[in-house]
């Protein structure tokens, strides 16, 4: 479903080019569960934003469901984000003045979905993340794990194909973290393509395969079978040389 060929992404920082992604060639199938690991600044988040159509490659080809994303204009990109992609952030990014239900409803309001349908879907989405009883709580009245579950409900309420999660458990304690991960796993089991960026090996361990990044390149692929006995699922590429 996702095809990346020779993807480069260069940022201009103070007149000097910074290579965030260099020659990334990847293929991700529908329903896969991918973890992306790597040190800070290795290009994990840039890759995620690019897949999520929040950013465009400087060069290379990105095909999503057979469509060349580079050819799309601003409006078409926003439609792809709306209909195909759900984002889950480390900082949740819930709108603080809206209660849980209204936060989940947010994407549907802008998508122009009718009120009754919205209400039905909000209820279903909150039910799926086990947050029905806290629908009228504002984010500051929720724990971190609860906030992330609301954020997942919001990310999935439009029925996306792909869920992109950037350090989804980065701000959570281990118990609520594992609740969130189980939730993501379950959604993946139901067919959602899941791509998780993480530092945490325990998070990565749940994936079908792990992409290890270093300095903008994918340096290593680890399959689920290789995890056994490894505390660190990836080798430091410098050490390997």
């Amino acid at each position: 479903m996702i095809q990346l060929e020779g993807i480069c992404r260069t940022f201009d920082v103070g007149g000097r080019p910074v290579y965030a992604l260099v020659d990334v060639d990847e293929q991700i199938e529908s329903g896969e569960h991918i973890a992306v690991m790597g040190p800070s600044g290795s290009g994990k988040s840039t890759l995620l934003n690019l897949i999520g159509c929040l950013d465009r490659p400087t060069s290379g080809s990105y095909r999503l469901g057979g469509r060349e994303v580079g050819d799309l204009d601003e409006l078409q990109l926003s439609e792809i984000r709306r209909d195909w992609i759900g984002f889950v952030f480390q900082a949740y990014h819930l709108v603080p003045r809206l209660d849980a239900a209204a936060n989940v409803e947010l994407p549907m309001i802008f998508a122009g979905i009718a009120r009754a349908e919205r209400r039905r879907r909000v209820a279903a989405a909150l039910e799926a993340v086990d947050m029905s009883d806290r629908a009228d709580h504002r984010p500051d009245q929720l724990s971190g794990g609860e906030r992330q579950r609301v954020a997942i409900a919001r990310a999935t309420v439009m029925g996306p194909q792909i869920l992109l999660a950037d350090e989804p458990t980065g701000n959570l304690d281990s118990e609520s973290g594992s609740q969130v991960l189980e939730l993501l796993d379950r959604m993946n089991d139901e067919g959602l393509t899941l791509i998780v960026v993480t530092h945490n090996p325990d998070v990565a361990r749940r994936a079908d395969r792990v992409m290890v990044m270093f300095d903008g390149r994918v340096t290593q692929h680890i399959s689920a079978d290789d995890f056994h006995g490894h505390l660190l699922p990836y080798r430091d590429p410098q050490e390997a040389q």
């Binding site: 409006l75 926003s78 990014h93 994407p107």
Partner: peptide, 16 residues
């Protein structure tokens, strides 16, 4: 700013 970023990530169009 973060809210605007979120709206964009949710696929909200510029005119909206």
């Amino acid at each position: 700013t973060a809210e605007v970023g979120l709206l964009k990530a949710l696929g909200v169009r510029r005119v909206q």
